[in-house]
Write a protein that binds this DNA or RNA. Structure first.
Lengths: 108, 108
DNA sequence: ACAACATACAACTGATTGGTTGCATGTTGT
DNA sequence: ACAACATGCAACCAATCAGTTGTATGTTGT
């Protein structure tokens, strides 16, 4: 089902289309952080940050593991790479155009 | 000003977070298309497609040139690469974590 | 046991989004 | 000149979003 890939792409790009979420992702890629620790870094309520974390988690860009009463979040670099590969596929479409132009030059 | 980069990232990722826009981008990366030609491909009004094209254009992912009464759109592969490099920078943050873990192992 | 802490989630609000229709403007072919 | 075409833009609508406050549920240390 190609539909599922599009859903995934929607979730990925939507998750990345917010600067607070990109910043959270940077932090959790650098190392594990509890939701509370993350929340302390931003000028908004705990609940707002918790929702941003949930968006990143639903997109698969971040996962959590429980440690005591804390929920430690860390970034998933594999997910990040699959976003990058989506862009590469787009770039390949562009390369195809160049190849076609070359063909036209050859024909001539 | 780092603020401007974040604005650009917001525009890029938001533009890519819609499957119709990603599809339009694929087409215009493969070759030039008029807005009307693009609009014919989707089950929505001309105006809706024209707005999607405008979002991609504002994000810098696509540019248009006038030819007669048509406006020919084509994808900007350089912009696409700068989105990819944003992801690479995120990945570098992750690599930094690994480097730090290696240091800890060394110290030991 | 219980007070304090960490998290999740529901309900609400204003702003933005993705779509619509209708209208205005510029361009072309006859 | 003008009818048809290509585009852009405004006004509107329903749905979603990013934020808020408040409440519920675990978990911990004493």
């Amino acid at each position: 089902m190609i539909e599922a890939d599009e859903d995934r792409a929607d979730a990925f790009f939507h998750a990345l289309a917010d600067r607070t979420r990109r910043d959270i992702l940077r932090r959790v890629l650098a190392g594990e952080h509890s939701v509370t620790a993350l929340a302390a870094s931003y000028p908004m309520s705990f609940a707002a940050v918790q929702k941003h974390v949930a968006v990143l988690e639903r997109a698969g860009l971040l996962s959590k593991r429980r440690q005591g009463r804390e929920q430690l979040a860390s970034g998933d670099v594999e997910a990040l790479r699959s976003v990058a590969s989506m862009l590469t596929e787009l770039e390949d479409v562009w390369r195809g155009r160049i190849a076609r132009i070359d063909e036209l030059i050859q024909e001539d």
